[in-house]
């Protein structure tokens, strides 16, 4: 039986027919509505490649049953840039070379956006590393990732102050 799932994805409300209650949020995003920016690395909540924000919180979308998020607001990597203008975290990832193959990158970036918003890590590299450790990077771009998060935090602090 097809059910209708309402999600606000990157600011746009959508009614999504769900033909299979087993579908995860990740597979709905990727296979049903074609938002393939969010990646699947393990499908088990072990790598963070599928990280998206639900109502501002970072979650592993591979572990989320889509139907249980009816009415939620979701931000994916596709929703960060404003037109050609990159989000400060995206810009910082390019500048600091916070990726190589780029496969973990959407998840890293979503995680970083939330980490900065959580305000727990601030500019302490040790806490940034800890706070980003749910996102594996097999290319091991960790030094760049940490640097990018710190750079973006500083840039966003400046924006706030301005």
């Amino acid at each position: 039986m097809t059910q209708i799932l309402n999600l606000t994805i990157n600011g746009t409300s959508q009614d999504i027919p769900i033909d299979d209650p087993r579908a995860t949020l990740l597979d709905v995003l990727r296979e049903r509505i074609g938002l393939t920016g969010t990646k699947k690395g393990c499908d088990r909540g072990q790598c963070g490649a599928c990280t998206v924000l639900i109502d501002g919180r970072r979650i592993n979308s591979c572990l989320a049953l889509a139907l249980s998020y009816d009415g939620a607001e979701i931000t994916t990597v596709e929703g960060l840039a404003q037109g050609e203008l990159l989000h400060p975290v995206q810009a910082a990832f390019i500048e600091a070379d916070g990726f190589q193959c780029g496969y973990c990158t959407p998840g890293q970036i979503m995680s970083a956006v939330a980490l900065i918003a959580e305000g727990e890590a601030g500019l302490d590299p040790e806490r940034v590393r800890e706070g980003m450790s749910g996102n594996l990077c097999r290319c091991a771009a960790y030094a760049g990732i940490t640097e990018a998060v710190l750079k973006a935090t500083r840039a966003m602090n400046r924006e706030d102050a301005a």
């Binding site: 699947k40 990597v77 596709e78 390019i94």
Partner: peptide
Amino acid sequence: TRRDGVLKVTGRATYAADNR
């Protein structure tokens, strides 16, 4: 910096399983 950087940070780089 990487020439494919923007594609990779915006989710627009297409990996094989992204094809539908």
